[in-house]
Design a protein around this nucleic acid. Structure first.
Length: 815
RNA sequence: GCGAAAGUGGCGGAACUUGGUAGACGCGCAGGACUUAGGAUCCUGUGCCGCAAGGCGUGUGGGUUCGAGUCCCACCUUUCGCACCA
């Protein structure tokens, strides 16, 4: 009936009070819908249905995120082509989703692997390229030397290839990047304006990773100085070959304690700095470092490194300090070089201890002096061991800055060094540019053509989409480049500018690009002439409420925000934050353990829907626990929810319109309407369901044939949770049209009022019972009533020392 | 290491941005009714100790308060995220 009447279709052009309820679209796996998906969708669906009952025109679209490595790997595993697998997976998902009774408007669905969709994904790439936000550079990828292929980060487990177990290496390939790092400050600042869960915002803040500090310059006096000589002569020749090493530090106040410099092994200055004596050692170390894959390098705790043979001048002390390379310094962060302050940095301390480099104290804490040894108490016996001092304090061994507090010194020293042209204050972000290249098959080809005469040429918009060809050998191989690079007939094209023989980019783009703009597309599906219609976009976006998993709290949400910002700058949309409100749902576990195929505890929604019905299943999922925290799925629990719905059904079937409803029951009903109406928008679905159950218990215990007025509103309250049952009962009770086109029942505050209340009585802070009394009693009256109750009165043995009355709630008698 | 969240019956979880009957609701369990039967339905009970009166109870130890699951201090544990980010 819903399908026939188009109940779930929103009138996008004319609907009043638009409400865009978005859920994160699933990857249509061959295994079918995961119960976690359904948990998320149901939670969003309830919210959306409730908003509709509040009078909004609700748009609840859903599509499929079908590109990417998961699909590709699965296709490889079962020996089928993804182009063949995806449609059947989608059909299966659609069947399952329909059986769950979601209010999805399927006339606006999308599939990221459809050329009609990815045409616009490529168009988004071109928009970024136009604005100079897409660029190419060499970057490290995970390389499996045994499978001879590029691995995605999620295919590397503990530094090894998840398939063959070989140690993963890093390789450098030319890749496309988006300049998201230029937007770091804005992405961070805008977070303050968003109605998102605090945990999600915090995760984004950490990812963006703002650090305020200084960029400092260290002059290398003579790159060719003799490593053995401690007093390097400053000659005019050496000045001529002088190089500057830039470092980033958050502790410029500790510069007097910088006793050496460290560069990342792949730092571009390393060659120039390495002296002939050190050359072979440095080369060896660099080779070793580059062999390590990205992950083990980051988790390897033992400090290793090599001396370059060069010395630089500490701009504060004027002393010569050695320049080292070590893999604990990361090229990706800051300037790829650090000033090492072993006295006040744990990592530097460890490194200095291993290589016997000088450690100087420049900050003294409470009760410490310049001479106090740098130690930290150990756990056992409180014995002191040498360690860096990380705490607050005042400067020592720092010349004119001695005695200054750390915070003041940070400012003062930065200013002093700035005056001397040795550095300046900078803000640094951890966020690095977004690498969107994938040396894979199953994604949208990056719309770029390389021409010998014209260079890098973007594919003209009119030539989009660049269709992904259906090739049989889509498996990545030892060429180390995309499978598309094996298909000359595909990549060989005339240059769009000069017409000469040219070559297509053979990498495809990251799946995260597909999902970074899909919410813009939904309202405009199925229009083929634009990515998104201007009027519809203006009316429906930004998304009113977005619900999804916290696993996407960082990347997906950040990328979507970035793309939206860029489109705003390009004048294509008129907002820069795509999701006004975001809430993350929790995780469903089963019998206390995470669901996994290997444990065999995966819940197949089909089985439960068949056995218990979609409504019971939905309601049970929401009853497990707080929606934002998830819950523990136990088979036994579902029966309680089923019983509740059965009882509601029986009450609706048996209720009568004769006579009057019971006043006490009606009071409870109105309290329930209030509670459910407050709980649903707060996503407290579990307590909303509990409140409805409680009401049904009250109704049942009144032991009369229920009056229609006592039952009908409950049908509406339960409708977001159990839409099928509610729709049927609505009709059974003579409701007009769909229950979802009716309005949410209003509660009457006057109904909640009662003349008498239960007054809790405490004696000396201990609860002794309660008395039923008239409202608005004075302290004396309340005390009298308490004394009058024998089970309470016996505790009031003397003259009260103090009496506290919380009007109409509680009386505490202190003896 | 850094960041975030959380510790409440046999179990999942309630207790409302405000300190005021801890354990709502559901599962499970126990007893009963109906039944040829019950994994159906309905009723009753169910934090712990105690025959009772009563006492004890929200991770541990302190504190504030007439009154603390809730606020403050210290600690312990667990989960999740990020992790050599200078």
């Amino acid at each position: 009936m819903w399908a026939e009447r188009g109940t779930h279709q929103a009138d996008l052009a004319n609907g009043a009070s638009p409400f865009y309820a978005l859920m994160m679209f699933p990857y249509p796996s061959a295994e079918g819908l995961h119960v976690g998906n359904l948990f998320a969708f149901t939670g969003c669906d309830i919210y959306a249905r409730f908003q509709r009952l509040q009078g909004h025109t609700v748009f609840e679209p859903l599509g499929y995120d079908a590109f990417g490595i998961h699909s590709e790997n699965f296709a490889l595993k079962v020996g089928k082509h993804p182009m063949e697998l995806i449609p059947s997976n989608i059909a299966n998902f659609r069947r399952q989703l329909d059986s769950a009774g979601l209010m999805v408007d399927w006339t606006h669905s999308l599939d990221t692997t459809d050329p009609a969709y990815y045409k616009w994904t490529q168009w988004v790439f071109l928009k970024l390229h136009e604005r100079g936000l897409a660029y190419k550079k060499a970057a490290a990828v995970n390389w499996c030397p045994s499978d001879k292929t590029v691995l995605a980060n999620e295919q590397v487990e503990g530094g090894r290839c998840e398939r063959c177990g070989a140690l993963v290496e890093q390789r450098f390939l030319e890749q496309w990047f988006f300049k998201i790092s230029s937007y770091a400050a804005r992405l961070l600042k805008n977070l303050e304006t968003l109605d998102w869960s605090e945990t999600t915002k915090q995760a984004q803040r950490n990812w963006i990773g703002r650090s305020d500090g200084a960029r400092l310059r260290f002059l290398v006096l003579d790159a060719l100085a003799d490593a053995g000589s401690s007093a390097v002569a400053v000659t005019t020749e050496s000045r001529a070959v002088a190089t500057t090493i830039e470092v980033f530090t958050t502790r410029p106040d500790t510069i007097f304690g910088a006793t050496y410099l460290v560069l990342a092994p792949e730092h571009p200055l390393v060659d120039a700095l390495t002296t002939p004596q050190q050359e072979s050692l440095v080369r060896e170390y660099r080779a070793l470092a580059s062999k390590q894959d990205l992950i083990t390098r980051k988790t390897n705790k033992e400090k290793t490194g090599e001396f370059t043979g060069s010395y630089a001048t500490n701009p504060a002390t004027g002393e010569l300090i050695p320049v080292w390379i070590a893999d604990y310094v990361l090229m990706e962060y800051g300037t790829g070089a650090i000033m090492a302050v072993p006295g006040h940095d744990e990592r530097d301390f460890e490194f200095a201890s291993v290589f016997d480099l000088p450690i100087v104290r420049v900050v003294a804490g409470e009760g410490e002096t310049a001479k106090t040894p740098l130690t930290a108490p150990t756990g056992v016996g409180g014995k002191k061991v040498p360690a860096a001092y990380l705490g607050d304090g005042r400067l020592v061994n720092s010349g004119r800055f001695d005695g200054m507090a750390v915070t003041d010194a940070t400012r003062a020293i930065t200013a002093w060094l700035t005056d001397r042209h040795a550095g300046e204050a900078v803000t640094n972000y951890r966020l690095h540019d977004w690498c969107i290249s994938r040396q894979r098959y199953w994604g949208p080809p990056i719309p770029i053509i390389y021409c010998d005469t014209c260079g890098t040429v973007p594919v003209p918009e009119k030539d989009l989409p660049v269709v992904l060809p259906n090739i049989a050998d889509f498996k990545p191989d030892d060429s180390g480049i995309s499978p598309l690079a094996r298909h000359e007939e595909w990549y060989r094209v005339p240059c769009p500018q000069c017409g000469n023989q040219a070559r297509r980019e053979t990498d495809v783009s990251d799946t995260f690009l597909d999902s970074a703009w899909y919410f813009l597309r939904y309202p405009s599906v199925p229009r083929a002439d634009v990515a998104f219609d201007k009027a519809l976009t203006k009316k429906w976006l930004p998304v009113t409420t977005y619900i999804g998993g916290n696993e996407h709290a960082v990347l997906h949400l950040l990328y979507s925000r970035f793309i939206t910002m860029v489109l705003k700058e390009a004048g294509l949309v008129d907002f820069e934050e795509p999701f006004t409100k975001f809430r993350a749902h929790g995780l469903i576990i089963r019998d206390g353990a995470k669901m996994s195929k290997s444990k065999g505890n995966v819940v197949n929604p089909d089985d439960y829907i068949r056995e218990w019905g979609a409504d019971s299943f939905r309601t049970y999922l929401m009853f497990l626990g707080p929606f934002e925290e998830g819950g523990d799925f136990r088979d036994a629990g579902i029966s309680g929810v089923k019983r509740f719905l059965d009882r509601l059904w029986a009450s609706a079937r048996d209720c009568t319109s004769i006579g009057e409803p019971d006043a006490e029951v009606m009071r409870k009903l109105h309290a329930t309407i209030k509670k459910v109406g407050e709980d649903i928008p707060a996503l407290s679905y579990n307590t909303a369901i509990a409140a409805m159950m409680e009401y049904m218990n009250t109704l049942r215990r009144s032991e009369r044939t229920p009056h229609k007025a006592e039952v009908a509103p409950v049908v509406q309250l339960v409708s977001p949770f159990a839409p099928h049952v509610a729709e049927e009962l609505w009709e059974m009770l003579g409701g007009q049209g769909s229950v979802f086109d009716a309005r949410w029942p209003a509660f009457d505050p006057a109904m909640l009022a009662s003349d008498t209340i239960e007054l809790v009585v405490q004696v000396g802070g201990k609860t002794r019972g309660k008395v039923i009394v008239a409202k608005g009693l004075t302290q004396e009256q309340a005390l009298l009533a308490a004394k009058g109750d024998p089970s309470i009165g016996k505790f009031i043995t003397g003259e009260p020392r103090k009496v506290i009355l919380v009007p109409d709630r509680l009386l505490n008698v202190v003896l």
